Simulated assay, not measured.
Amino acid sequence: MLAILGVLLLVWIVVAVLGFVIKGLIWLAIIGIVLFLATSIFGWVRRKTTRR
């Protein structure tokens, strides 16, 4: 599960960077950032609940 989250985080970073690099695709960067944050929060919550 942790490996899948790591891959997803890497994909979202690439999407966000591409959105900033390619002019006119700022919406892609925003989506990448939002998905990165959502995946990070999901992984953090999931990890905290599995420790108990």
Rank of each mutant, 00 (worst) to 15 (best):
M1F: 07
L2F: 09
L2C: 04
A3W: 12
A3T: 11
A3S: 09
I4E: 08
L5I: 09
L5W: 02
L5H: 02
G6T: 01
G6V: 03
L8I: 14
L8E: 03
L8F: 09
L9V: 09
L10G: 10
L10M: 11
V11N: 02
V11L: 14
V11M: 12
W12H: 09
W12F: 12
I13D: 06
I13R: 01
V14H: 07
V15K: 01
V15L: 08
A16E: 13
A16G: 08
A16V: 15
A16W: 03
V17E: 08
V17H: 05
L18K: 12
L18Y: 10
G19V: 10
G19R: 04
G19I: 12
F20I: 11
F20R: 11
F20T: 15
F20D: 12
I22W: 10
I22C: 09
G24D: 05
G24T: 12
G24W: 05
G24C: 13
L25I: 14
I26P: 12
W27V: 10
L28N: 07
L28M: 12
A29C: 15
A29R: 03
A29P: 01
A29Q: 06
I30C: 12
I30D: 07
I30W: 15
I31L: 09
I31A: 13
I31S: 04
G32H: 01
G32N: 05
G32D: 05
V34G: 04
V34H: 02
V34R: 02
V34K: 00
V34I: 10
L35R: 03
F36M: 08
F36W: 11
L37I: 15
T39D: 07
T39E: 11
S40N: 07
I41S: 04
I41A: 10
F42D: 09
G43A: 08
G43M: 03
G43Y: 01
W44M: 15
V45S: 06
V45G: 03
V45R: 07
V45D: 06
R46P: 00
R46S: 12
R46L: 13
R47D: 08
R47Y: 14
K48W: 06
T49E: 12
T49L: 08
T49M: 06
T50G: 00
T50P: 04
T50R: 02
R51E: 11
